[in-house]
Design a protein around this nucleic acid. Structure first.
Lengths: 207, 207
DNA sequence: GATGTTTTATAGCGTCCGCTTCAATACAAC
DNA sequence: GTTGTATTGAAGCGGACGCTATAAAACATC
C-alpha cells in the first residue's frame, strides 16, 4: 500500500476516523455525505477515498472504532476492576450518564436499525457485538451468583438478555425520550432482577 | 381543498398511505426517495405532492398512521379485553411475535433514532407516544397491584419505564440480533419484576 | 354540451450524491 | 539533484435527489 517511498500523509488516520465516526454517529449513514465526512476530517474527497476506501468501507471502520472505544474497552474496564454485580451496575449507569450528556445514542443501535437490514456484512458485525455484550452480562451474572452478590434465583441467560435489551432500549430513549428519570427508573428496575445479595461481594474474587 | 367539482382521485388515500408507510418502515426516511414512494403507492410524483404535501409531511402522516394502527389500537385492545397483568404480558409477547415475523422493528423506534434528532416536530410526536406507552404500562401495574395479580413490591413508575425501555430494545434486536430465544428471555425476565400474584386476577374487574 | 376545478402524466428545474480523473506536490531513496 | 511513488486539491463524471411547471384528462355542475 504505502511503501515508504512517497509523499507522506498530512493527517493522522486515527483523528480523521474519529471525526468521521462522530458525523456518522450524529447524522446516520444515509444522511452523511462523503463531502460532509471530508469536511469533518479536514480532507478532500480524493484523500478520503485514497485512505479509507468507499463510503461503506469507511463506515465499517468507524463502527469498529466505535465498538472498540465505547463497548469493548468499557466491558474490559468494569469487568477487570469491579466485582460482577457492580460491573453490571456501573455499565448500565454509565450508559444513562452518557445518554443524558450527548443524546447521540449508540452507533451500534443506530447501525442496527438503519444499516444492518440492507447490508449483511454490517448485520453480521452488529449481531456479533450484541452477542458479545450479552455474554458479558451473562458472565457477570454467573460470577455474581457464585460470589453471593447476585441471587441464585436470577437466571443468567434471561438476565443477560434483559440487560442487553435494556441497553438498546436506553439508547433509543436517549434520542427519542431523553428524560433522566425514565432512564434511571428503567435501570433500577432492570437491576432488581438480580435480587438481594446473600452476602457482600468479596473483592478478592477478582483482581 | 377538494370541492366536489372536479376530477376525482383515482386512488384510495388510505391504501396509498399504507404503502408509503411500509416503504418508510422498511428503508428509513433518508433512504426512501419520493420516486420510490410514488412507485409503491402506484402514483406519479405530481400526485404524491398534490395529495400528501412534501416528503416530510408525508412521513408524519405515515408515522401517525403507524402509531394508530400498531400502538394505540393494540393498547386499547389488550387493555379493554384482558386483566392488567395479562395485558402487559400480551403486549410484550405480541411484540416478540411480530419481531420474529417481519424483522422490520418499529417505525417509532426507527423514527426516534433517524429522524427525531434533526426534526423537532417529529421529536415531539415521538416523545408523546413514548410517554403514552409508558403510562399504559403504569396504569396496568397500578391496576394489577390493586387486583392482586401484581406484587405490591413492584414500583409502577419504575416497572413502566423498564417495560417501555424493553419494548424499544426488542425493536432494536429485531433488526440487529433477531434471535427468538433472546427476545423471549428478555421478556420473561422483564415480566419477573411483577412478582408472584397474591391471588388470581379477577376477570370481572374489567369488562 | 359547455364550464370550472382538480388530478394526472410528462418533463424538467437546480442541487447534491458517490466516486473518479488528473495534474501538481511532497517526500524517501539513490 | 534526480527519480519514483503516494498524497493532495480541483474539476468533473453520470445519476439520483426533492420538488415544480405545464398541459392534457376526468369529472360535477349548470
Amino acid at each position: 500500500m504505502d511503501q515508504d517511498l512517497a509523499r507522506p500523509r498530512e493527517f493522522d488516520e486515527g483523528v480523521a476516523l474519529e471525526a468521521a465516526m462522530q458525523r456518522f454517529w450524529a447524522d446516520g449513514y444515509a444522511s452523511t455525505s462523503v463531502r460532509d465526512l471530508g469536511d469533518a476530517m479536514g480532507l478532500g474527497q480524493a484523500s478520503v477515498y485514497n485512505a479509507f476506501g468507499d463510503k461503506r468501507t469507511l463506515f465499517t471502520q468507524c463502527l469498529d472504532r466505535y465498538l472498540d472505544a465505547n463497548m469493548r474497552s468499557r466491558i474490559a474496564r468494569v469487568e477487570s476492576t469491579l466485582p460482577p454485580r457492580q460491573a453490571i451496575e456501573a455499565f448500565l449507569s454509565e450508559i444513562v450518564e452518557r445518554s443524558m450528556e450527548s443524546r447521540l445514542g449508540c452507533l451500534l443501535a443506530n447501525a442496527a436499525l438503519e444499516v444492518a437490514p440492507h447490508d449483511t456484512d454490517i448485520a453480521d458485525v452488529v449481531a456479533e457485538r450484541m452477542a458479545e455484550l450479552e455474554s458479558f452480562f451473562r458472565r457477570c451474572v454467573i460470577a455474581g451468583r457464585k460470589d453471593g452478590s447476585i441471587s441464585p434465583d436470577a437466571d443468567p441467560a434471561d438476565a443477560a438478555q434483559l440487560f442487553l435489551t435494556t441497553v438498546m432500549g436506553l439508547r433509543v430513549l436517549a434520542r427519542g425520550y431523553p428524560k433522566r428519570a425514565v432512564l434511571e427508573g428503567a435501570v433500577r428496575q432492570a437491576l432488581s432482577v438480580l435480587g438481594k445479595p446473600r452476602r457482600k461481594p468479596n473483592p478478592s474474587t477478582r483482581t
